[in-house]
Amino acid sequence: MTNDSPIIPKLSASGIHYFQTYDESLALWPIPYKTFYVPTRFGQTHVIESGPEDAPPLVLLHGALFSSTMWYPNIADWSSKYRTYAIDIIGDKNKSIPADLCGTRKGYADWLLDVFNHLGIEKSHIIGLSLGGLHTMNFILCASERVESAVILSPAETFLPFHHDFYQYALNLAEPNGVDHFLKWMMADRSVLHENFVKQFHAGVMWQDGSRNPKPKTDGFPYVFTDDELKSVKVPTLLLLGEHEVIYDPKSAFNRASTLVPGIEAEIIKNAGHVLSMERPAYVNKRVLRFLET
C-alpha cells in the first residue's frame, strides 16, 4: 500500500528550499526510480525504489542529515541485483513527514516494521550508514525474523560512544562555515561531494522544524548497545569502518564488535573515513554485494 500524494503540512520557506535541494540531489540518481510515501503509525515515510521488480529486497537507511539521496554513488551497483528501497528515516531532515514521533528504540523498530508491512516485505537485507547503521542494529535486535542479513557502515555510537569532537562540530553546524568545517573534519581531502548534495545538506541544517531531529531520550538514540545485546545478534552481519573514522576510534569499535557479535564479518577500509560509501564507493559496492551473495 503506497501513497503518492500525502498531505504535506505547510512548509516554512526553509522547508520549501530544502525540498527543492532534495530534488536537485535526487537528479544525481543514475538509474530509473520511483518515489512514493507509505503510511505508518508515526507518519508518512518517503521511499525511493529502484531495481528489478522481481529481485530480492534490499532496504537502505541513510546517515543523519544526509537523507536517502546519499546513496547515489552506490545505487546502480546494488540495484543491479536487488529491488532497493531507500527509506527516509522518520524524524530526521528528509522528505518523510512525522506525525507522532516514536523517539524510543522500540518506537523506531515499530516504525520500520510498519514500513516493511506496507511495502509487503516479509524479509529483507538491510544496509545502514551512521544513524542508519544504528537503526539497523536496533532493528535486527528487535525483529531479527524480518532480516536476511545486515550491513552496518560507520554506525553512530552502537559499539562506542561518540568522541567529544563530534558534539563540538555538530553544535556548530549552523554557524557561518559550520557545514564546511563539519564535512572537512569528517572527510578531509579524500573525497569531494557533489555540489548539489552539499547544498542539500546545508539546507537541511538550516531548516528549523521541531518535528524533526527531536531531543534524545534516555531510551532512544544515540545509544551504545550492551554486551548482552550484541551477543544476542542472530542475523549475519557485515561491519565496515574507515581507517580515518573521527567519531570514535575505529580499531576499538572493530575489536568490540568482533569480540561480541556472533559470526560478524568486520573490516577497516583503507583511505576511507566516516562516509565510506561516498568516499570509496567502488570498493564498498563490491564488498557489500560479495557479502550479500554469500
Rank of each mutant, 00 (worst) to 15 (best):
residue 82 Y to Q: 08
residue 264 I to Q: 01
residue 219 D to F: 01
residue 49 E to P: 06
residue 24 E to P: 00
residue 130 S to I: 09
residue 119 L to I: 14
residue 286 K to A: 15
residue 284 V to Q: 02
residue 193 L to Q: 10
residue 243 E to G: 06
residue 234 K to M: 08
residue 45 T to H: 08
residue 220 G to S: 11
residue 110 D to Y: 02
residue 98 P to H: 06
residue 271 N to P: 00
residue 225 F to I: 02
residue 50 S to W: 03
residue 275 V to M: 14
residue 10 K to E: 13
residue 91 G to M: 15
residue 173 L to S: 00
residue 7 I to V: 14
residue 114 D to P: 07
residue 80 S to G: 14
residue 291 F to T: 12
residue 66 F to M: 10
residue 235 V to H: 07
residue 122 E to R: 03
residue 161 P to M: 04
residue 173 L to C: 07
residue 88 D to M: 00
residue 88 D to V: 06
residue 278 M to W: 04
residue 241 L to H: 07
residue 216 P to N: 07
residue 67 S to N: 06
residue 235 V to Y: 00
residue 218 T to K: 09
residue 113 L to I: 09
residue 40 T to Q: 05
residue 278 M to R: 08
residue 164 H to A: 14
residue 115 V to Y: 04
residue 52 P to C: 02
residue 211 S to C: 05
residue 293 E to Q: 15
residue 234 K to H: 02
residue 193 L to F: 14
residue 7 I to C: 05
residue 182 F to L: 08
residue 222 P to R: 09
residue 93 K to Y: 07
residue 202 H to A: 15
residue 276 L to S: 06
residue 107 G to S: 13
residue 154 S to R: 01
residue 82 Y to N: 00
residue 133 G to N: 05
residue 153 L to V: 12
residue 103 G to D: 10
residue 82 Y to E: 13
residue 239 L to S: 05
residue 129 L to D: 08
residue 164 H to S: 15
residue 11 L to E: 14
residue 90 I to C: 09
residue 144 S to D: 07
residue 117 N to V: 12
residue 157 E to G: 05
residue 90 I to F: 00
residue 166 F to H: 15
residue 167 Y to G: 15
residue 160 L to M: 15
residue 85 Y to W: 04
residue 140 I to D: 01
residue 14 S to R: 09
residue 241 L to V: 00
residue 274 H to T: 09
residue 45 T to D: 02
residue 177 N to F: 11
residue 81 K to D: 11
residue 242 G to D: 03
residue 106 K to V: 12
residue 134 L to F: 00
residue 46 H to S: 05
residue 79 S to I: 07
residue 111 W to A: 13
residue 12 S to V: 04
residue 67 S to E: 02
residue 274 H to N: 06
residue 9 P to H: 06
residue 131 L to I: 11
residue 276 L to R: 03
residue 66 F to D: 11
residue 84 T to K: 09
residue 111 W to P: 07
residue 288 V to K: 00
residue 3 N to W: 04
residue 109 A to E: 04
residue 269 I to A: 05
residue 93 K to Q: 11
residue 226 T to G: 02
residue 26 L to S: 01
residue 8 I to S: 03
residue 184 K to W: 08
residue 237 T to D: 00
residue 87 I to C: 08
residue 121 I to W: 04
residue 138 N to I: 01
residue 56 P to G: 10
residue 98 P to N: 00
residue 254 F to V: 09
residue 89 I to H: 08
residue 126 I to G: 03
residue 267 E to L: 10
residue 294 T to A: 13
residue 258 S to A: 09
residue 50 S to R: 07
residue 221 F to H: 15
residue 202 H to V: 10
residue 39 P to T: 08
residue 248 Y to W: 08
residue 106 K to G: 01
residue 202 H to L: 12
residue 171 L to P: 06
residue 270 K to R: 13
residue 207 W to R: 14
residue 62 H to N: 10
residue 165 D to L: 14
residue 268 I to L: 01
residue 92 D to I: 04
residue 43 G to Q: 01
residue 141 L to G: 11
residue 107 G to L: 11
residue 188 A to G: 12
residue 264 I to S: 03
residue 99 A to C: 05
residue 28 L to H: 05
residue 171 L to G: 15
residue 252 S to E: 14
residue 222 P to W: 00
residue 179 V to I: 03
residue 269 I to C: 09
residue 138 N to Q: 09
residue 206 M to Q: 12
residue 94 N to Y: 04
residue 276 L to G: 05
residue 83 R to A: 10
residue 63 G to T: 12
residue 117 N to M: 12
residue 180 D to L: 11
residue 142 C to H: 15
residue 146 R to C: 08
residue 281 P to H: 06
residue 129 L to Y: 02
residue 145 E to R: 13
